[in-house]
Design a protein around this nucleic acid. Structure first.
Lengths: 118, 118
DNA sequence: ATCGTTTATCGCCGATGAACGATGAAGCAT
DNA sequence: ATGCTTCATCGTTCATCGGCGATAAACGAT
């Protein structure tokens, strides 16, 4: 539980900033594809990923770095390669946070969900 | 000579594109704040929102439009004002889609590590 | 030491996003 | 009609993203 200090009306909590950053990391089809690749074959090296998403190696490296910066994947150097794995906890946390926001926001708006319809 | 024919799997599912677009709409603290405002007082007009997030009116209008374009809020003209409301169904759908991806991806990688109970 | 492989990073570019002020349309009130 | 309020849009400025090729570092192998 945290207090909403209403002192400032700009409701920009650091929590929201982190979540926004992580959602931004997820908001690109290529990165969703990369996550799926990592899900199928955990601990992929970049070259594997490059072969599967059809983008240049530098581009894949960039996307991976975005995911890494957001904490959604982990990095382990392995010989001359790099092994990237999913950070399941972080991923679950993001999904959970979004779900919680959606729940809270929707319950507040009309006492439940399932917006009217009638 | 790279084959861009990697089209078979992960490149660009229309589903992913939509989800990515909606996640992008959610990936800004100001827009999360706007959703919260709409949750507390459904059917806000822009001026209300401006007073609560501390941004210029034009900026708020822009953010609202981003949410509207993503289908996450609905618009109803009302007198000389505008009433924006949450689209609970769409919001739930986004959260659900993300959750499903995370589940599927994580179950593939290691049999599913637990959820952080938060 | 030299080569080949794998990777991260840099530089570059066009495109998009974020923020603002200013302007004009739409509606209510007088 | 005049004025006031509310809002969307336009134009501008600055920063970041997305994509690529090129390059250099790290490492294994020869």
């Amino acid at each position: 539980m945290k207090h909403h200090s209403a002192a400032r009306s700009t409701c920009s909590d650091p929590d929201d900033q982190l979540l926004a950053r992580q959602l931004a990391a997820l908001s690109h089809p290529a990165r969703l594809a990369l996550l799926r690749c990592l899900g199928e074959r955990d601990a992929c090296c970049v070259k594997d990923l490059v072969g599967r998403v059809g983008l240049a190696q530098s581009t894949v490296s960039q996307h991976i770095r975005t995911l890494l910066d957001a904490g959604l994947v982990t990095y382990t150097p392995d010989r001359q390669a790099s092994r990237y794995s999913l950070n399941s906890e972080a991923l679950s946390a993001v999904a959970g946070s979004l779900d919680q926001i959606v729940q809270s926001v929707c319950s507040g708006c009309c006492g439940g969900k399932g917006r009217t319809g009638t």
